[in-house]
Design a protein around this nucleic acid. Structure first.
Lengths: 146, 146
DNA sequence: TACAGTTAAATTGTATAAAACTTAATTTGT
DNA sequence: ACAAATTAAGTTTTATACAATTTAACTGTA
């Protein structure tokens, strides 16, 4: 039986330390990690609702609204009320926001390569297990909602 | 080659969602997850320096100082300046802090069992890979310090 | 033994997270 | 049609994270 304590501490520590490495690279582009994540969602699919960004990153409006306002202030995104449904806000990339993609991805490549070549690390297996655990945890969260 | 983006997002999401499940249980004891982690360190070794707690949890004094003051306000720990070295602060469990251990661990057991029995989840392998990645990331962080 | 360098906490400032609540707009059930 | 329920963002509050700076205390060494 795996200790829940050890598993959660491992996830928590590894996640935070890896993000620190990433932020070190991202700071050159004035992006925090959650801001970068938001941009990656938009690079994959432009013009998307706040709610949809939240679903993909598991973040809610309390986190995203101020974050998106900062990205707007940096002129990386535009925010527009939906015409059909006035409750929604559509997020669109600006030209500077789009051009950022290549630069940021290039800047992250060296770290990606170093990690993939790290001896004794089997990242694809880890990645796969993580997705399974994520699904299980989501299932449990939804169960408790009833 | 495993995508750094996908790996970090998996770690980040899974960590946060799992912690949400844990907080749901911990709130009955008025503990947040980082406060719980701090208590687990003290349950393993009582009377320890802030710096040592920080090393085990990878947290610095900017996070721990206010957190420990809250635990002190709840009467779970005592904070004492070192007599030999006035710069240090020793953290000790109070009696209520010690008694909390059994209660909290009991309360977490059901979730631990559910996760261990989740079909398709191989937690011990995940746990092992996580520790390897954590070590690699620590190594990289230390390299960059130079 | 001065004293530059280091160390441990604390403080400051910025940016998340997430629960709880509010507001405005849309949907639904009858 | 229309009141009730739901939904999407935003706001508020509390608690991290963490970089950067500050302060006080300790240490090695010329």
């Amino acid at each position: 039986m795996v200790s829940l304590h050890q598993l959660s501490l491992g996830l928590y520590s590894t996640s935070r330390l890896l993000i620190q490495l990433l932020q070190n690279i991202l700071k050159e582009y004035h992006l925090t990690y959650p801001q970068y994540l938001t941009m990656t969602v938009l690079w994959e699919e432009d013009s998307i609702l706040v709610k949809e960004i939240g679903e993909r990153l598991h973040l809610d409006s309390g986190t995203l609204t101020p974050l998106l306002k900062k990205l707007e202030a940096m002129n990386y995104v535009k925010r527009q009320r939906g015409e059909d449904d006035e409750r929604t806000v559509h997020i669109e990339l600006t030209y500077p926001g789009k051009s950022l993609q290549t630069k940021v991805q290039q800047a992250l490549l060296p770290l990606e390569e170093i990690l993939n070549e790290m001896p004794g690390l089997e990242l694809s297996g880890l990645n796969h297990s993580l997705q399974s655990l994520l699904e299980s945890v989501e299932t449990l969260k939804n169960l408790k909602k009833e």
